[in-house]
Design a protein around this nucleic acid. Structure first.
Lengths: 150, 150
DNA sequence: GCTGAAATGCTTGGACG
DNA sequence: CGTCCAAGCATTTCAGC
């Protein structure tokens, strides 16, 4: 059996690491770092993007620095097999839900919520609970957070 | 009591949303979107960065598209009061740990791990368990994931 | 796969109303 | 907040090895 994914070499890995550390690094800066010229680095980044390894770029936000911002993690338990689509059917339309993970174990999934206040949070949790196959939730308010690439 | 944080108005919020959707958007593009010129938008972004609302920019990576990549969530239970620094003392030196959340409730914290394989995962979980005040862990392998800004 | 060069456009800083 | 200007870079594309 051969690789089904893309071939990723060490230079690709270094490019990925550099772009994780700073998603706004310029191509020419990266080129210097990895010891190539701009053109091949640009081609590699384009390939990583179009093949879905790099799915996008985003600004990292410290919600605690904003007025009345609240982050929470909601553990979800689901009847029967979990397919992520079921949760996403709700999540995509609720802007407060920023991320969903389907898990092997208990809980079956985790949703992350960024709400303006506790009432917003309650509303979003209720939306998740309303989903027919969600049998239970546990909401955990985030007190502090750290991210490697933040 | 007055606001301790920065004053963030609606335009700031739109800028943040645009940069979350695409962290590489140009200032001039954002200026068009929010109906201002480049100079004030640049000033706002600089202010959001230096005040710590925007903590950085990063590329979003789909680990499943790379060879042998595995993501997991580890729930942590801790003796006594949790201060995040305690966990971070371990996490910062372990590149597989990408994020740590301190929570109000049970579990006391969550760590996210990106490992090459199951042995890497085991090693990292053991590093966390070795911390004197971690009394228990539960490891959940991520089967599928979705992120709004990804 | 790579280098190198040219045209275009963006960014950054400053001065000013 | 806006405009304008100017210098410096980055991006992008197109050649060629």
């Amino acid at each position: 059996m051969t690789h089904h994914g893309l071939m990723i070499d060490d230079i690709d890995r270094r490019i990925i690491r550099l772009l994780r550390e700073d998603g706004r690094r310029t191509v020419s800066d990266i080129a210097i770092e990895v010891g190539l010229t701009v053109a091949p680095v640009k081609r590699r980044i384009d390939r990583l993007e179009s093949s879905g390894v790099i799915t996008g770029y985003t600004a990292q936000i410290d919600m605690t620095k904003m007025d009345s911002a609240l982050e929470a993690v909601v553990e979800l338990r689901v009847a029967g097999n979990l397919d992520l689509e079921m949760i996403l059917a709700v999540a995509e339309d609720v802007p407060e839900i920023t991320e969903v993970l389907a898990l092997a174990g208990d809980p079956d999934a985790i949703a992350r919520i960024q709400a303006e206040n506790i009432h917003d949070l309650q509303r979003v949790v209720n939306l998740l609970r309303t989903n027919g196959r969600v049998t239970g939730t546990k909401t955990l308010v985030v007190l502090d957070s750290w991210s490697r690439y933040g």
